[in-house]
Design a protein around this nucleic acid. Sequence first.
DNA 1: CGCGATGCCTAGAAAGACGAGGCATAATAG
DNA 2: CTATTATGCCTCGTCTTTCTAGGCATCGCG
Lengths: 103, 103
Amino acid sequence: MLQGTLDMLILKALSLGALHGYGVIQRIRQTSDEMLNVEQGSLYPALYRIEQKGWVSSKWETNETGRRAKFYSLTRAGRKQLEEEEASWDRLVLAIAKVRQAT
Amino acid sequence: MLQGTLDMLILKALSLGALHGYGVIQRIRQTSDEMLNVEQGSLYPALYRIEQKGWVSSKWETNETGRRAKFYSLTRAGRKQLEEEEASWDRLVLAIAKVRQAT
DNA sequence: CGCGATGCCTAGAAAGACGAGGCATAATAG
DNA sequence: CTATTATGCCTCGTCTTTCTAGGCATCGCG
């Protein structure tokens, strides 16, 4: 996958509600109609980075099946960051569209 | 800039006609309405990689002002590669749009 | 004459994604 | 009952790509 988009996808997934890491992967896969598959080796380091930056907070909880898991939720800063990354993404998509339209 | 899009931009720029490295930077900047600025330190290594892969070929020529410059032109394989990268880009944009639409 | 633009290049650092592995428990298949 | 798959977490090393910062040469213009 393209480097730089993962943070946005994770933040977006968490914007739909708190979730544990493994669930983030599933949510991204589902909401993208199976088009995006995030590897665990990419996700967990990314979650760590993102938490260090204060965009998410985590706590260990127990899910509905009785398993313990680390649940992440968006912070206010994370919500702001998501907006910025989406805007930045839109700019990039627009810029590349322009180049591709050039004759 | 996002990692992974540079090759496509270079190939696209060259699809409009052969050009030397410095000119590729200008063409990308112009066609993107100044939104994309490729650094020389990114471009020249990228051109080298792309040539190694057989997507472009180069030869030293003299431009209209009498300066020598290395002109790159798309090969058939390069044209094919450009199509693939554009299709792949479209898929990614679609996939991310889906995730962002999710409620 | 000096400086910015044009033109090429490299080396090193930084970042991020990935594959492969390790570990543990629960559910399911055989 | 046992073996495999799914769920859940993590780390390490590698690879790729981009950027910053430099170096070098020539041309045009003020």
